[in-house]
């Protein structure tokens, strides 16, 4: 029994991290209909930025995190400007392949700039590693922090999309770019802003990820990015609450499968894909269906 409870806590932590990464992923897709495969790599760059701000420029950890997140936003801005904007009217497959190319480019660039050896992310206060013992259950302080950040960002993004003028423009772009531009919205700026926010969300989640798994290396964004993509698809890609729900479902399943069937632990990733396939068979648009009609 206490095993189950401990595993539920472990699952909440992992699920919270997936949810956090999936928020940024799904937001960019929801607005631009672009599966941004470079999301995980911008996440990785954000972590490196934060790490170097603290180590090389000896900033306090919280300032380093903020500057890292802002720099990741700038990186997202440049990526959009250089790689995605020229392809805005090209077939969607071109943008998708460009996203994969950007992903490889950012990884290889990180190998050249930061080196291939994993670096430690022990730059945050020990407080987050403290363990709360509650009835034999051990909860890392970070768990509360991650859950807090996930929900703040969830409601922050929802507020942005549904309660602000910019958000209205973003949702309009999702349906029809030329008409939105006729309505007087500056489409270029709105799309840039979407990328900046998406990249800042990626960096935030990356920093949380590195606080839990303090191993920073150029390929660190690949698996979390992939898992977040699955989480977003499970939740219904484009839906922000869906991404959070999908993240928790995925994290919890991964932990519980291993918890109940320890022999299968080496194949845990298989389960992530099995849930995805089964779910897509019954609900092809994910749990939260967003846009029922596609523009043609």
């Amino acid at each position: 029994m206490s095993h189950l409870a401990q595993n539920l806590i472990n699952g909440t932590l992992l699920g919270g991290l997936y949810a956090l990464i999936a928020i940024g992923y799904t937001m960019v897709y929801g607005i631009l209909r672009l599966i941004n495969f470079a999301h995980g790599d911008i996440l990785m760059w954000g972590v490196y930025f934060a790490l170097y701000m603290v180590i090389a420029l000896s900033m306090p950890w919280w300032l380093g995190f903020i500057v890292g997140i802002v720099l990741a936003g700038l990186l997202g801005f440049s990526v959009e400007k250089v790689a995605y904007r020229p392809l805005r009217n090209a077939p969607r497959i071109s943008a998708l392949i460009t996203a994969i190319g950007i992903s490889f480019f950012l990884e290889s660039l990180a190998v050249v700039v930061f080196g291939g050896i994993p670096k430690s992310f022990n730059i945050y206060p020990k407080f987050f590693n403290k363990i709360v013992i509650f009835n034999h259950l051990r909860i890392q302080m970070l768990t509360f922090f991650i859950l807090g950040v996930t929900f703040v960002l969830l409601f922050g993004v929802l507020w942005l999309l549904y309660r602000t003028k910019t958000g209205t423009a973003m949702r309009a772009i999702a349906t029809d770019i030329p008409t939105t531009s006729l309505m007087g919205a500056n489409v270029d700026n709105i799309i840039s802003l979407t990328f900046i926010i998406g990249s800042m969300l990626a960096a935030t989640s990356g920093i949380m990820w590195a606080m839990r798994y303090p191993q920073v290396q150029p390929y660190m964004g690949f698996v979390p990015g992939l898992k977040a993509f699955i989480a977003a698809v499970i939740g219904g890609i484009g839906s922000v609450p869906g991404a959070v729900v999908g993240g928790f479902i995925l994290g919890m399943t991964e932990i519980l499968v291993v918890g109940f069937f320890p022999n299968l632990a080496g194949y845990r990733d298989v389960f992530a894909y099995v849930i995805l396939i089964v779910l897509l068979m019954f609900r092809p648009t994910g749990i939260f269906t967003v846009y029922s009609e596609q523009k043609v």
Partner: peptide, 21 residues
């Protein structure tokens, strides 16, 4: 007793919870 994982895994909390039992 045996537990399993694979290279690149970052979370071992489920296996460890089982192992420490």
């Amino acid at each position: 007793y045996r537990e399993f994982y694979q290279s690149g895994d970052q979370d071992f909390s489920a296996q460890l919870t089982d192992a420490l039992g």
